[in-house]
Amino acid sequence: MSQKQDILVTVVSPVLGTAEVMAGFVEQTSTFLQEHYTNYELLLVDAGAEEPVMDSLSGLLKDLPCIRLIRLSAKANRDVMLFAGLEAAIGDYVIVMLPGSDPIRAIGDLVDTMRNGSDIVYGLSEIPTRRSPVAKLGANIFYWYGRKYLGLNIPPDSTYLVGLNRRSINALTRIKGRYRHVRHLTRQVGFKTSVYRYQPEPIVPGVERGLWESVRLAKEIVVSYSQHPCVW
């Protein structure tokens, strides 16, 4: 086994999907972190997960070290959950990933990329995101609108997987506001960035965002970061 890197790594993940998905994710991530880093934490953020999921996690919390669970007081969307995690993370390097979707090996790749000089590393799917025709049309309109009018350049195949070093985390968490979106704000804070291309696992039920949730998110991003289209 290679020597552990003497750094503090945090993995931030929302509690999504079934108990089985979460248990697998927690066990694999914990093993990977334990094998590769002298100090680590796995920070899970819950916003109203089902009881069987929380029961399963409670058992894992007792057995596995260095896991923290933050429970939000109300249901919240993915970005609110992730920001809660980012604000509590103490790592020198923080990886945001979705259980059941992002591969565990990405942790090592993202940390290495940041240790080689990048402040922020974005995940980009090599597989086009599977969407229904309606969802695809909506996504295309949203990304086009964002690029043209909002100065928002989120690639259509960008994922929630992102690596942030301490100074980019500090900058990101200084941005206050009711609506904060990880994929948007990480592209706004500056610093040296790079892209990590990978193949996400097929999204499992419970992790995938529904059509209406996507519409709501798109609307929220448009109105919270810009006066457009109200003021031209």
């Binding site: 503090l8 002298t38 100090n39 934490e41 103490i90 790592g91 020198d92």
Partner: peptide, 14 residues
């Protein structure tokens, strides 16, 4: 036991 100092410091210095 390994010292938890790195974690204490990482959080406290925030």
């Amino acid at each position: 036991l390994p010292s938890a100092y790195p974690k204490m410091l990482a959080d406290a210095q925030r």
